[in-house]
Design a protein around this nucleic acid. Structure first.
Lengths: 198, 198, 198, 198
DNA sequence: ACCTGCGGGACGCCCCGTTAGT
DNA sequence: ACTAACGGGGCGTCCCGCAGGT
């Protein structure tokens, strides 16, 4: 029956995700994953031809998850370009989506820099998000509520802020209430973008 | 004479830095480093007790470099809190300082998340910079040229922006003129911080 | 219906034979065979209890083929002991029979040296042929056309010559026209065996 | 000191030779060799980059041994082309030289058929011997003691006989007194080559 | 009866970071 | 400063049972 197979595969993936996130890709051996998942190496290599392959599979899943979440979040912002705060709120979504998987994110970047296929998988969605933000901004400009800045640059700026906060939240979790900091930061930036209405 | 010894050590370090940056920490073997540096493994272990140790040594050097560069840059901003643009310019310095060593930076973060000693070495300077920016902001607030925001949060925001730009510049170098983008981004943020003089 | 089954079995065997011959027994995995034959591993193990077993099955078939061919060839020689050249011609048959399967032959010997069952299967026919040649020689001696040598030794000598040529032809195919060399060689030997009629 | 190193290397080689000969190349794992030799895997790979490499090293040594032995043996035959029996005796040398290493010889051929480098190492000496025998024969022809046959073919025939006997002696050791059989066989052939002095 | 997918472990080769002995 | 040796894994693969479907 195929149910069993699917379960095994899922188990392996979830374990692998967690271990990659906790110990990193290189430090996690296939044997580790198998032991933790309670399967044999035979089972592992039945489902994934290579250690790299499970990483890519994980990555794919993770990106599509993120995609869904962000798309949903931006629905609201999309329709209310004047309420820039909603954009600020959206960034919280980005952080949430990455919650507890930051190390995996790092690993992913590191791998991306070395393996073209991974890079491909990484760069596309990144540009996608940047574009989404740029679109929102552009609409705001057209509507006359945002300064006439370069929308692309603004998009990149928003992404940069989100990424930077993500990173800080990761390597200094106790340093601040990152949740609130995210909102505040984004507000500061938004304030710089909105048209001064006297 | 110790000259020879010093040279060997330096050679090893420079090779190691480059290889870590290009291939990553785990993917770079001690043997690789030795071959490239033209020394024996014995020589390597004569100078560094452990592979980790050379990494830390490298890290220390790198951080102190960065420190010096940033301190110099912030001298100006420090004394001219009203010219917030100078702060924007300073972020360019951060990018410059990391030029071509981003992968090493990533490795460093990854390692930091796992080894307390590394984390220690990483978190301290990070907080240092954040504090510097916060100070500049605070002075601006006191002088009445900046909105009465929370200075710490503003500091974190600036650092976040810098980090985020660094990251983007790294994994999508062709995506934009990051140099200029950095300045523009910072200006947008600054605009949100400054007091509306109207 | 069993037709399907028989076909599958035959397909597996033919693929296995070719792969063993080309890559050797150890270097050919069951998975390789299955992939090439277009069947699942389950199917393989349904037909053959073990990898060794398919080898033995193949071997058995191969030997009985060889047997048939040689027996046919020696019919002639048997009845014309004075025409020693026909014996020479027979050796060509040996070479022909092994055409393109030398590596399998080698594998077979190697396996034989380690597994008694295989050895059993190998040594019997070998002695059979040697005996056939010895018989022909003995008849020649009785008929007075061949020197009074030890017939067994002569038989072994003929077999040796055939084997040696086979081997050379295998690992240095371009080295000579082995076809003709075989005949010439055998003639030289025959000349040493025949009674000097002068 | 380098003495230790040399000893370790020699120990590894001798153990490997024996195990390859007894169990075959594929069936002998590096771990087996190490255990038997009482060294660590690290030591093994310090001396030999690859499992294949130790095989080649062994092969090289074996061939040069054989070379030396045969050269010495053919010295006599060389100078006494009329005493063809000495050539017959020489073949005994070939058998002696291979004593107890036949399986290694087989392995070697099997490997040769798959790895060009091995084949290279194998084919050269083989042609060398064939040539030596051919030379002896040619001299005999020139001296008028041997039939005007094609010397090359005769050389190949002698080699074939030697190989064939070697093989039979290996897979049916009890079948005959191969020592004496070798001499008898060679005499039969020689008889066919020599000029009928009548 | 025939065939399939899945799973199980045991190893195989290679390499890695490191310590002893000069 | 350097060569030799050391173990301990790492990844990938192999040969092979079962449970299940057709």
């Amino acid at each position: 029956m195929q149910k069993r197979s699917e379960e095994t595969r899922a188990k392996i993936m979830s374990v692998a995700l967690e271990m990659f996130a906790r110990q990193g890709y290189d430090a996690t051996s296939v044997a580790d994953i198998c032991r933790e998942a309670g399967v044999s190496k035979g089972a592992f290599y039945h489902h994934f031809p290579t250690k790299q392959d499970i990483f890519l599979a994980l990555l794919r899943g993770w990106l599509s998850d993120l995609d869904a979440q962000l798309d949903a979040l931006l629905q609201g912002a999309d329709s209310v370009p004047k309420g820039l705060v909603s954009v600020a709120g959206a960034t919280r979504g980005v952080l949430k989506a990455a919650e507890g998987r930051q190390l995996f994110l790092m690993e992913f970047w590191v791998q991306a820099s070395r393996h073209p296929e991974v890079w491909e998988a990484a760069i596309a969605p990144y540009r996608h998000y940047q574009q989404m933000f740029a679109n929102v901004i552009q609409r705001g400009i057209d509507a006359g509520v945002i300064q006439p800045v370069d929308a692309d640059t603004a998009g990149r700026t928003i992404v940069a802020l989100a990424l930077g906060l993500l990173l800080q939240a990761w390597f200094d979790p106790e340093g601040a209430a990152w949740d609130k900091t995210a909102v505040q930061s984004m507000l500061m930036l938004m304030r710089g973008l909105e048209k001064k209405t006297l």
